[in-house]
Write a protein that binds this DNA or RNA. Structure first.
Lengths: 192, 192, 192, 192
DNA sequence: TCGTAACCGAGACGGTACGTCGTGTCTTCAG
DNA sequence: CTGAAGACACGACGTACCGTCTCGGTTACGA
């Protein structure tokens, strides 16, 4: 049942998302203020607060709306092929500076704002783990999964390396490293 | 050659470091303000600004001064033993909530303040990588090092998993996972 | 053409003016801080800085708004009657401790802040001289004005005595002295 | 009986007085800080606080030390001659910008610091009134004094006009105005 | 077609913290 | 003991954003 009243302005929504992405790319999270987003988008602050709980939620929205953050997990037939596909898709995404800037901002904000931290953990980080989980379950069903790095540890390793490079070393993700990781995790030819 | 003028007050320095650690434990980085540190330490704000470039530098100082952050790397005779020692020391440290709170704050601030980010990267993160590097060099000299995960990737994996759990999942570091990691990286008996 | 946005709060404005007057009466100009005004008025500091260039401008506003600083110059029929009315009104105002406290603060601030000094001189001091000037012009037109103390000097004498007592001797203005001044300036019966 | 220890440095004293005069001339009272005086004089702040209760006392000291502030009151033979001498000496002094700058600073500080205000009133302002008082007493003894402006009012008029021009209009004192004042106060030929 | 309700931009509001400046006191070392 | 140097606790400064709250004005549905 459509309520009365003016409709939400799609134009303002787009302007806000774009402004947020631009600002985070230009100045980092430190220079990202609600006032600056509103000013650049030509929008009142209230319009932002009306639709998003925090500026990080704006970014999260922008990330899922603009970039195709979604990493599909098609069945490639084997654990190795599945994992390779997942890693390459993930590492490719992690080479886009615009995406990386947003990821940094999201993780930073989740440390400052516990409520957002929970949303981010449940709605984003866990979703990525689940995607990898699907793949690992499939491998387990096939009996392909090595016993020793438990699925949880595999996820910790894969996402750990991504976030560590994004936040700590700030070096772009390297596809060659994805292959190293693949070899390590599938146990193929790793003897001295 | 001692300069003239009053000496720096060691008492104030200690009070500031302690206050910073307490506040970050109580309220997280979000509640850590220079004013609050100064108030709790019974100190003027200027005394903090005089000696530390930012509040995160205070924490970094407190971390290295109070907690024995230093992870020594004695030669245990083999790569596996060396790495086990390193991982256990690291994971143990990463189970101390006071240390973890500070680590979160440091990484958060390094995203907000690029200048501190550089200091943190060079003075802390790289130092930890170097410690692991000593160990890996020793193993390479002995010919014990598996070919495939390059030393850089080993470091990314080890520190990646630590930081990912500290920042993202917020689950305490698990010694059993250290053993998993050890098995994986030394290539010992990991077939299904 | 009304601009968009929330209107200025008249309630805040009144609270600020009142707080400023109270504080200057209680503690003098030395104890008058923008922070104290804001705190007492239950107002953010920014609200003060938004509307007044300095704390003295708040006081000046309060003086003209609250106290009836205005000294009317009705035509009393003769120079002597006009001047008596002017002097009595001025001296009466100068006996109100609340007014005197503010005057002291304004003159003090005008020495500290040259920009305010100019505003004060043009917008307040000159206005008072002009009021006296009207009266003197009228007397001149009637041919009542003694030749020797030029109008400018008459003004210097009248306002000089007021400010000197306010700032230097800190003695309340004395109506009897107004009569002395009147006799002197109108040249009535002043021989030995 | 000479106390033990190092003697007070006359060189430092002179440097402080000179620095204070220079600063007040360059920046007015607003830019006159103890730190700036100490820095320019090449002196520790403590040396200033040791010998003067406030920065205004430094200026007061400098004024009486450097400029010959003293207005002598020789007996010129008649009230008119005495008063003319006094007024011309006073107005001449009040035409020196360096003196005027200091006077402004002293009066300003006396509004901010009640203790200095009292010192200034008793030690400086009253001294000037007393000088004029000597002259008026002499005239009274001779029977030359007009009845109507009482001696106190004469003083209020004379010093009022000086301070009013120094603080309020900021116009230099005018010798012609001294003559006007003289004519007015001695009652000589002032009919229309 | 006319409320009425939700939207919009703008921007003022009460707050909190920022980083800086000056105060007057204190501590250190040199003369 | 004085003097230069400078660190100290303190308090106010003026600014930047926060998240909230009016404003006047604009859609757009339902009576």
């Amino acid at each position: 049942m459509p309520r009365p009243g003016r409709k939400r302005s799609e134009q303002s929504r787009q302007a806000i998302l774009t402004a947020a992405l631009e600002l985070v790319a230009e100045t980092g999270y430190g220079g990202l203020t609600v006032e600056a987003i509103a000013a650049r988008a030509g929008v009142g602050k209230q319009t932002i607060y009306r639709w998003w709980p925090s500026k990080a939620d704006v970014l999260l929205d922008a990330l899922t709306a603009k970039a195709s953050t979604f990493v599909p997990v098609p069945d490639e037939g084997s654990y190795a092929a599945d994992l390779r596909a997942f890693l390459l898709a993930t590492f490719t995404l992690g080479r886009d500076p615009r995406v990386v800037d947003v990821l940094r901002a999201l993780m930073t904000h989740s440390q400052l704002d516990p409520a957002f931290g929970e949303r981010f953990r449940v709605g984003f980080l866990q979703a990525r783990r689940d995607a990898l989980g699907v793949l690992l379950d499939r491998a387990a069903a096939r009996g392909e999964l090595p016993a020793t790095p438990s699925p949880g540890t595999v996820a910790d390793i894969v996402f750990g390396i991504v976030w560590y490079r994004v936040l700590a070393t700030r070096q772009p993700l390297d596809p060659a490293q994805a292959e190293e990781l693949l070899a390590l995790l599938t146990g193929s030819t790793s003897s001295p």
